[in-house]
Amino acid sequence: MSRPEDTLAADIHYNDSEARKYTTSSRIQNIQASMTRRALEILDLKSPSLILDVGCGSGLSGEILTAERPEDGGPHTWIGMDVSPSMLDVALQRDVQGDLLLADMGQGVPFRPGAFDAAISISAVQWLCNAEASDTSPAGRLARFFDGLYASLRRGARAVCQFYPKNDQQKTMITRAAVRAGFGAGLLEDDPNTKNVKLYLVLTVGGSAGDGRGGDITGVVDGMDNVDVLDSRPKAADDKSGKGAIKKGSKAWIVHKKEQMERKGKVVKTTSKYTGRKRRVAF
Protein backbone atom coordinates (compact mmCIF):
# COMPACT_ATOMS: atom_id res chain seq x y z
CA MET A 1 0.00 0.00 0.00
CA SER A 2 1.34 3.41 -0.86
CA ARG A 3 2.01 5.87 1.92
CA PRO A 4 0.96 9.48 1.39
CA GLU A 5 3.85 10.49 3.67
CA ASP A 6 6.32 9.34 1.01
CA THR A 7 4.96 11.43 -1.81
CA LEU A 8 3.96 14.86 -0.54
CA ALA A 9 4.10 17.18 2.44
CA ALA A 10 1.10 17.03 4.77
CA ASP A 11 -0.25 20.47 3.96
CA ILE A 12 -0.07 19.77 0.20
CA HIS A 13 -1.34 16.19 0.35
CA TYR A 14 -4.45 17.15 2.30
CA ASN A 15 -5.89 19.55 -0.24
CA ASP A 16 -9.60 20.32 -0.48
CA SER A 17 -10.59 17.07 -2.16
CA GLU A 18 -8.37 14.82 0.00
CA ALA A 19 -9.61 16.55 3.14
CA ARG A 20 -13.22 15.98 2.16
CA LYS A 21 -12.55 12.37 1.17
CA TYR A 22 -10.79 11.76 4.48
CA THR A 23 -13.61 13.21 6.53
CA THR A 24 -16.57 11.70 4.69
CA SER A 25 -15.17 8.16 4.48
CA SER A 26 -17.07 6.14 7.05
CA ARG A 27 -14.25 3.62 7.22
CA ILE A 28 -11.73 6.29 8.25
CA GLN A 29 -14.27 7.82 10.62
CA ASN A 30 -14.73 4.49 12.39
CA ILE A 31 -11.02 3.81 12.67
CA GLN A 32 -10.33 7.33 13.94
CA ALA A 33 -13.12 7.07 16.47
CA SER A 34 -11.95 3.76 17.86
CA MET A 35 -8.36 4.99 18.08
CA THR A 36 -9.42 8.17 19.87
CA ARG A 37 -11.45 6.14 22.37
CA ARG A 38 -8.46 3.92 22.99
CA ALA A 39 -6.27 6.99 23.49
CA LEU A 40 -8.78 8.43 25.96
CA GLU A 41 -8.79 5.14 27.82
CA ILE A 42 -5.01 5.35 28.19
CA LEU A 43 -5.11 9.02 29.20
CA ASP A 44 -7.50 8.04 31.99
CA LEU A 45 -8.80 11.56 32.68
CA LYS A 46 -11.00 11.84 35.73
CA SER A 47 -12.47 15.30 35.21
CA PRO A 48 -13.15 17.69 32.30
CA SER A 49 -9.75 18.76 31.04
CA LEU A 50 -7.99 20.96 28.55
CA ILE A 51 -6.52 18.75 25.83
CA LEU A 52 -4.17 19.52 22.96
CA ASP A 53 -4.97 17.67 19.73
CA VAL A 54 -1.89 17.60 17.53
CA GLY A 55 -2.77 17.06 13.89
CA CYS A 56 -6.47 17.52 14.63
CA GLY A 57 -7.37 17.59 10.94
CA SER A 58 -11.09 17.99 10.46
CA GLY A 59 -11.78 17.46 14.14
CA LEU A 60 -12.84 13.80 13.96
CA SER A 61 -11.05 12.97 17.20
CA GLY A 62 -11.95 16.31 18.77
CA GLU A 63 -15.64 15.55 18.42
CA ILE A 64 -15.17 12.48 20.57
CA LEU A 65 -13.38 14.53 23.22
CA THR A 66 -16.30 16.97 23.26
CA ALA A 67 -18.86 14.18 23.37
CA GLU A 68 -17.23 12.32 26.27
CA ARG A 69 -19.91 11.61 28.86
CA PRO A 70 -19.74 13.20 32.35
CA GLU A 71 -19.47 9.78 34.04
CA ASP A 72 -16.31 9.08 32.00
CA GLY A 73 -14.73 12.37 33.00
CA GLY A 74 -15.94 14.47 30.07
CA PRO A 75 -16.78 16.66 28.29
CA HIS A 76 -13.29 17.89 27.51
CA THR A 77 -12.26 21.17 25.97
CA TRP A 78 -9.67 20.88 23.24
CA ILE A 79 -7.38 23.04 21.17
CA GLY A 80 -6.35 21.53 17.86
CA MET A 81 -3.43 22.32 15.64
CA ASP A 82 -2.99 21.16 12.07
CA VAL A 83 -0.81 22.12 9.14
CA SER A 84 -3.40 21.63 6.40
CA PRO A 85 -5.71 24.62 5.76
CA SER A 86 -8.11 22.41 3.79
CA MET A 87 -8.55 20.04 6.74
CA LEU A 88 -9.21 22.98 9.06
CA ASP A 89 -11.69 24.33 6.54
CA VAL A 90 -13.64 21.07 6.70
CA ALA A 91 -13.48 21.32 10.49
CA LEU A 92 -15.02 24.80 10.29
CA GLN A 93 -17.81 23.55 8.04
CA ARG A 94 -18.53 20.74 10.48
CA ASP A 95 -18.74 23.31 13.26
CA VAL A 96 -16.52 21.57 15.80
CA GLN A 97 -16.37 22.90 19.34
CA GLY A 98 -12.62 23.03 19.81
CA ASP A 99 -10.41 25.94 18.99
CA LEU A 100 -8.34 25.53 15.82
CA LEU A 101 -4.84 26.66 14.99
CA LEU A 102 -2.96 26.50 11.71
CA ALA A 103 0.48 25.43 12.87
CA ASP A 104 3.22 22.98 11.94
CA MET A 105 4.06 20.61 14.79
CA GLY A 106 7.60 20.32 13.40
CA GLN A 107 8.07 24.01 14.20
CA GLY A 108 7.29 23.44 17.85
CA VAL A 109 4.20 23.76 20.02
CA PRO A 110 3.53 27.47 20.63
CA PHE A 111 1.96 27.27 24.08
CA ARG A 112 3.28 28.44 27.39
CA PRO A 113 4.66 25.86 29.83
CA GLY A 114 2.26 23.67 31.72
CA ALA A 115 -0.82 24.65 29.72
CA PHE A 116 -2.48 21.30 29.04
CA ASP A 117 -3.81 18.39 31.08
CA ALA A 118 -3.19 15.95 28.26
CA ALA A 119 -2.39 15.69 24.59
CA ILE A 120 -3.52 13.32 21.89
CA SER A 121 -2.39 12.89 18.35
CA ILE A 122 -4.06 10.47 15.98
CA SER A 123 -2.20 9.36 12.84
CA ALA A 124 0.00 12.43 12.63
CA VAL A 125 3.44 12.04 14.16
CA GLN A 126 4.80 9.91 11.30
CA TRP A 127 4.56 12.98 9.07
CA LEU A 128 7.48 14.45 11.04
CA CYS A 129 9.77 11.80 9.58
CA ASN A 130 9.45 13.40 6.15
CA ALA A 131 11.25 16.71 5.96
CA GLU A 132 10.21 18.32 2.73
CA ALA A 133 12.62 21.27 2.68
CA SER A 134 16.39 21.33 2.50
CA ASP A 135 16.75 23.44 5.66
CA THR A 136 14.93 21.02 7.97
CA SER A 137 15.70 17.48 9.01
CA PRO A 138 13.36 14.83 10.43
CA ALA A 139 15.47 14.65 13.58
CA GLY A 140 15.29 18.40 14.09
CA ARG A 141 11.53 18.52 13.53
CA LEU A 142 10.94 15.58 15.87
CA ALA A 143 13.09 17.22 18.53
CA ARG A 144 11.30 20.56 18.26
CA PHE A 145 7.92 18.88 18.41
CA PHE A 146 8.60 16.70 21.43
CA ASP A 147 10.48 19.46 23.29
CA GLY A 148 7.56 21.81 22.72
CA LEU A 149 5.00 19.18 23.67
CA TYR A 150 6.88 18.27 26.84
CA ALA A 151 7.00 21.90 27.93
CA SER A 152 3.35 22.62 27.16
CA LEU A 153 2.03 19.77 29.31
CA ARG A 154 1.58 20.15 33.04
CA ARG A 155 3.52 17.90 35.41
CA GLY A 156 1.92 14.49 35.77
CA ALA A 157 0.15 14.80 32.42
CA ARG A 158 0.02 12.12 29.77
CA ALA A 159 0.13 12.23 26.03
CA VAL A 160 -0.91 9.51 23.59
CA CYS A 161 0.28 9.63 20.00
CA GLN A 162 -1.08 7.00 17.65
CA PHE A 163 1.11 6.80 14.57
CA TYR A 164 1.91 4.67 11.54
CA PRO A 165 5.65 4.14 11.33
CA LYS A 166 6.95 3.12 7.93
CA ASN A 167 9.47 0.72 9.42
CA ASP A 168 11.23 -0.14 12.65
CA GLN A 169 13.75 2.60 12.03
CA GLN A 170 11.06 5.28 12.08
CA LYS A 171 9.53 3.74 15.16
CA THR A 172 12.86 3.92 16.98
CA MET A 173 13.54 7.43 15.73
CA ILE A 174 10.21 8.76 17.04
CA THR A 175 10.45 6.96 20.37
CA ARG A 176 14.04 8.10 20.92
CA ALA A 177 13.12 11.71 20.19
CA ALA A 178 10.34 11.53 22.79
CA VAL A 179 12.63 10.05 25.43
CA ARG A 180 15.30 12.64 24.68
CA ALA A 181 12.76 15.41 25.28
CA GLY A 182 12.29 14.07 28.81
CA PHE A 183 9.13 11.98 28.46
CA GLY A 184 8.65 8.61 30.04
CA ALA A 185 7.76 6.66 26.93
CA GLY A 186 6.23 3.31 26.12
CA LEU A 187 4.73 1.73 23.02
CA LEU A 188 1.34 0.09 23.13
CA GLU A 189 0.58 -2.22 20.24
CA ASP A 190 -3.00 -3.20 19.47
CA ASP A 191 -3.62 -6.24 17.27
CA PRO A 192 0.09 -7.01 16.88
CA ASN A 193 1.23 -9.02 13.84
CA THR A 194 -1.92 -8.29 11.88
CA LYS A 195 -2.62 -5.87 9.08
CA ASN A 196 -4.64 -3.73 11.48
CA VAL A 197 -1.80 -3.21 13.92
CA LYS A 198 -2.15 0.11 15.74
CA LEU A 199 0.78 1.65 17.52
CA TYR A 200 0.32 4.10 20.38
CA LEU A 201 3.21 6.05 21.82
CA VAL A 202 2.30 6.61 25.45
CA LEU A 203 4.14 9.50 27.09
CA THR A 204 4.20 10.72 30.67
CA VAL A 205 5.55 13.97 32.03
CA GLY A 206 7.32 13.70 35.38
CA GLY A 207 4.82 13.85 38.20
CA SER A 208 4.90 12.08 41.50
CA ALA A 209 4.33 8.36 41.69
CA GLY A 210 2.38 8.99 44.89
CA ASP A 211 -0.88 9.95 43.26
CA GLY A 212 -0.79 6.90 41.04
CA ARG A 213 -0.08 8.93 37.92
CA GLY A 214 3.29 9.39 36.31
CA GLY A 215 5.93 7.19 37.87
CA ASP A 216 6.95 4.26 35.75
CA ILE A 217 5.54 4.12 32.24
CA THR A 218 4.33 0.55 32.62
CA GLY A 219 2.04 1.79 35.38
CA VAL A 220 -0.08 3.51 32.73
CA VAL A 221 -1.55 0.25 31.50
CA ASP A 222 -2.19 -1.14 34.97
CA GLY A 223 -5.66 -2.57 35.19
CA MET A 224 -6.21 -2.62 31.43
CA ASP A 225 -7.39 -5.86 29.89
CA ASN A 226 -5.34 -7.87 27.45
CA VAL A 227 -2.18 -5.86 27.81
CA ASP A 228 1.14 -7.65 28.13
CA VAL A 229 4.08 -5.63 29.38
CA LEU A 230 7.30 -6.34 27.54
CA ASP A 231 10.00 -4.47 29.42
CA SER A 232 13.34 -4.62 27.65
CA ARG A 233 15.02 -2.02 29.81
CA PRO A 234 17.91 -3.13 32.01
CA LYS A 235 16.70 -3.81 35.52
CA ALA A 236 17.77 -1.58 38.40
CA ALA A 237 21.06 -2.48 40.11
CA ASP A 238 19.55 -3.84 43.33
CA ASP A 239 17.72 -6.60 41.44
CA LYS A 240 20.93 -7.99 40.07
CA SER A 241 22.35 -11.16 41.51
CA GLY A 242 26.00 -12.07 41.63
CA LYS A 243 29.13 -10.03 41.55
CA GLY A 244 27.95 -6.65 40.35
CA ALA A 245 25.61 -6.07 43.24
CA ILE A 246 28.15 -6.04 46.08
CA LYS A 247 30.84 -3.42 46.09
CA LYS A 248 34.29 -4.88 46.20
CA GLY A 249 36.05 -4.24 49.51
CA SER A 250 32.84 -3.60 51.45
CA LYS A 251 31.98 -5.58 54.57
CA ALA A 252 29.33 -7.57 52.71
CA TRP A 253 31.90 -8.51 50.12
CA ILE A 254 34.42 -9.62 52.77
CA VAL A 255 31.81 -11.71 54.57
CA HIS A 256 30.82 -13.27 51.27
CA LYS A 257 34.43 -14.15 50.51
CA LYS A 258 34.92 -15.62 53.98
CA GLU A 259 31.89 -17.85 53.51
CA GLN A 260 33.27 -18.98 50.17
CA MET A 261 36.60 -19.86 51.75
CA GLU A 262 34.88 -21.63 54.63
CA ARG A 263 32.95 -23.77 52.18
CA LYS A 264 36.24 -24.71 50.57
CA GLY A 265 37.42 -25.92 53.97
CA LYS A 266 39.94 -23.18 54.67
CA VAL A 267 40.51 -21.88 58.17
CA VAL A 268 38.68 -18.58 58.46
CA LYS A 269 38.62 -16.13 61.36
CA THR A 270 35.17 -15.65 62.86
CA THR A 271 33.20 -12.68 61.69
CA SER A 272 32.72 -9.96 64.28
CA LYS A 273 31.72 -6.33 64.42
CA TYR A 274 35.35 -5.46 63.67
CA THR A 275 35.37 -7.34 60.37
CA GLY A 276 36.17 -5.07 57.45
CA ARG A 277 36.80 -2.04 59.61
CA LYS A 278 39.70 0.29 58.97
CA ARG A 279 42.39 0.31 61.61
CA ARG A 280 42.88 3.55 63.48
CA VAL A 281 45.91 5.55 62.37
CA ALA A 282 47.30 5.49 65.94
CA PHE A 283 47.66 1.68 65.86
Partner: peptide, 14 residues
Protein backbone atom coordinates in the same frame (compact mmCIF):
# COMPACT_ATOMS: atom_id res chain seq x y z
CA UNK B 1 -8.99 34.34 9.52
CA UNK B 2 -12.36 32.71 10.07
CA UNK B 3 -11.37 32.17 13.68
CA UNK B 4 -8.18 30.24 12.87
CA UNK B 5 -4.85 31.80 13.77
CA UNK B 6 -2.00 31.15 11.38
CA UNK B 7 1.08 30.10 13.35
CA UNK B 8 3.06 28.84 10.37
CA UNK B 9 6.45 30.50 10.33
CA UNK B 10 8.98 31.00 7.56
CA UNK B 11 11.88 28.65 8.23
CA UNK B 12 14.38 31.37 9.22
CA UNK B 13 12.26 32.22 12.28
CA UNK B 14 11.93 28.66 13.57
Amino acid sequence: REGIANFLLPSHLV
